[in-house]
Computed example of a mutant assay.
Amino acid sequence: MFDFIDDFYDSLFKPSRGIARVVQERTVWHGLFIYLAVSLVASITSFVGTGTEEAFTGLTQYMDPENAAALMRAWPVLNLLSVIVFYPLLYFVWAAVLQFSSELLGGSGKGLQVATGLGYGQLPYLLVVPFGLIAHYMNYIVPLVSLAAFVWSVVLKVEVLHAVHGFSRGRAALAYFLPALVLVAAIFIFLVLIGSILMPLLAEMFPM
């Protein structure tokens, strides 16, 4: 129990020490448990904070009231199933992607340690829970707190790559954002290619 409290506190507020410890001493199953627990709590809190009446009203815009009511009743079970089935897949895929990008930059750490650290990197989202519960009354503050939790989480995950692979923090940040940069570049190239193909056709179809 006290080990978890130490891990929680140090990972959040002393990441250079806490993250370095958990990637060495905790297993990937600890990381997965933290990841799933935080995701489930944050999801439930978001739903409760929104308010069942507002959620029901929103659903009735896309379906009849009977189906909306049935979906509302089934939501807790559906949410639990999605977390159990899909989140572990997302967890390991993201860890594998970060491990690959780190190896491209010369990293030699273990992928399982990266996965362990990613789980603890989700801990800042727990701090959104109290604000999520009162979101119905303070809508303006929840996006700000969520943004702060997201940035904090990214910082912790960069720290994970720093601890596992021995990178400088600048290189660890590059390894973390490299997949997103590659994706953006690929989309940009795809759009340029599509544009180069379509523009002559459009010019013929709609001559000036």
Rank of each mutant, 00 (worst) to 15 (best):
Y120M: 11
G121H: 07
G121C: 12
Q122V: 07
L123N: 02
L123W: 03
P124E: 09
P124W: 02
Y125L: 07
L126G: 10
L126N: 09
L126Q: 09
L126Y: 08
L126D: 08
L127I: 14
V128E: 06
V128W: 01
V129R: 07
V129N: 08
P130M: 15
P130G: 14
P130Y: 14
F131H: 00
G132I: 03
G132Y: 02
G132E: 03
L133R: 11
L133T: 11
I134L: 14
I134P: 04
I134K: 10
I134N: 08
A135K: 08
H136C: 07
H136P: 00
Y137T: 10
M138F: 14
M138L: 14
N139C: 00
N139W: 11
Y140V: 12
I141D: 07
I141N: 07
I141K: 10
V142R: 09
V142K: 09
V142C: 06
V142E: 08
V142M: 15
V142P: 01
L144T: 08
L144E: 02
L144Q: 05
L144K: 09
V145R: 06
V145T: 06
S146Q: 14
L147P: 00
L147S: 06
L147N: 00
L147V: 04
A148M: 15
A148K: 12
A148R: 11
A149Q: 01
A149T: 03
A149C: 12
F150N: 01
F150S: 01
V151Q: 05
W152A: 01
W152L: 04
S153F: 01
S153D: 05
V154L: 10
V154F: 02
V154A: 03
V155F: 13
V155G: 00
V155Y: 14
L156I: 11
L156V: 08
L156S: 06
L156H: 04
V158G: 01
V158F: 04
E159I: 04
V160R: 01
V160K: 03
V160L: 07
L161F: 05
L161P: 01
L161D: 01
H162E: 06
H162M: 06
H162G: 01
A163I: 12
A163Q: 13
A163N: 10
V164S: 05
V164I: 13
V164T: 12
V164G: 04
G166L: 13
G166D: 12
G166Y: 13
G166R: 13
F167I: 08
F167G: 02
F167A: 08
S168G: 15
S168P: 10
R169S: 05
G170M: 11
G170D: 05
G170K: 14
R171F: 06
R171E: 10
A172W: 04
A172S: 13
A173R: 12
A173S: 15
A173I: 13
L174S: 07
L174P: 00
L174I: 12
L174V: 14
L174R: 08
A175Q: 05
Y176W: 15
Y176K: 02
Y176P: 00
F177S: 09
F177C: 09
L178S: 10
L178M: 15
A180I: 13
L181I: 15
L181Q: 05
L181S: 09
L181D: 03
L181P: 02
V182W: 06
L183A: 15
L183S: 12
V184W: 14
